[in-house]
């Protein structure tokens, strides 16, 4: 059993380790290690395409995470008062949303958006008061943020809900009893109690968007996120530069995940 487990872990982590290691390769060949150097990081960060893709990824990840956190928290709160069968249905839908393969979400979102744009664009052009310059809806930031935000919202709902379930209902009642309005209770009691959940949800949402390739591949339109960039450059061969980018994405994601986990753990103790 132990050997098995060890093999699984090795199989999972050796490729990642190799990428991280080779990102520091002094030589230019991906297959043979020729001493340590950070030159590929410098190269990657001075490549305008990489910087551009990084910026896009950051904007999309931040915006979608903020939206997902906001709406996910609101949804989690609203779901609290939903009971019975409706509740079961909602729960099931949320879990399904998390488990649906990214490729399905990618294709479905693509088809839905393109159909919608095809239908809306002539309409927009028709009602536009000026002769020219009617806005054209197209894939890009908007569709990326929408697709990522929607998907990450399910994650946030699950995390915030778990946190809420652990919260003592009588705290809310005590607050009301002491004269706090419903909004006052939310601000002074509920929010501080569920804040670790919200923050962790935000970090996970960010991570999800930041390293997502599949959905972005379908709905990015003319935009290029970092994972999409990596994918397209791999067709020209795996360079240490790609390894460096991959390692940086990994580092950011890991940092977020560890922080989220630490927040949840600490919140559990203090809560």
């Amino acid at each position: 059993m132990r050997i098995y487990a060890l093999a699984v872990y090795l199989f999972l982590y050796i490729p990642i380790g190799v990428i991280a290691l080779f990102s520091f390769n002094a030589g230019r060949h991906a297959a043979q290690f020729q001493g340590f150097s950070a030159q590929w990081y410098g190269k990657a960060l001075s490549n305008p395409f990489v910087v551009d893709a990084f910026q896009t990824s950051l904007i999309v990840a931040l915006t979608s995470a903020v939206l997902a956190t906001l709406f996910g928290t609101m949804a989690a709160m609203a779901l609290q008062s939903v009971k019975g069968r409706l509740r079961v249905a909602f729960d099931a839908l949320i879990y399904i949303a998390v488990m649906v393969p990214g490729i399905v979400i990618g294709i479905a979102t693509l088809i839905a958006l393109v159909t919608l744009f095809d239908w809306l664009n002539p309409l927009l052009a028709a009602v536009w008061p000026l002769a020219e310059g009617a806005p054209q809806l197209s894939l890009g930031y908007g569709s990326l943020i929408a697709a990522h935000g929607l998907f990450a919202m399910a994650l946030v709902i699950i995390i915030v809900r778990a946190r809420m379930a652990g919260m003592d209902r009588s705290l809310v009642e005590a607050s009301a009893d002491l004269g706090a309005t419903p909004w006052g209770t939310f601000r002074q009691v509920t929010l501080p109690q569920i804040f670790p959940g919200i923050l962790a949800g935000f970090l996970l949402a960010f991570t999800f968007s930041f390293d997502d390739f599949i959905i972005a591949f379908f709905v990015a339109g003319s935009q290029t996120t970092l994972p999409v960039y990596v994918f397209s450059s791999i067709r020209r061969g795996v360079t240490p530069e790609i390894n460096a980018i991959g390692t940086m994405v990994l580092a950011v994601s890991l940092l977020m995940l560890v922080t989220a986990q630490a927040i949840l753990q600490r919140g559990r103790k203090a809560g």
């Binding site: 003592d168 009588s170 705290l171 009642e173 005590a174 607050s175 009691v189 501080p192 109690q193 203090a270 809560g271």
Partner: peptide, 8 residues
């Protein structure tokens, strides 16, 4: 009954 003091 269980005091419901605010832990934060």
């Amino acid at each position: 009954q269980h005091y419901a003091l605010f832990p934060h």
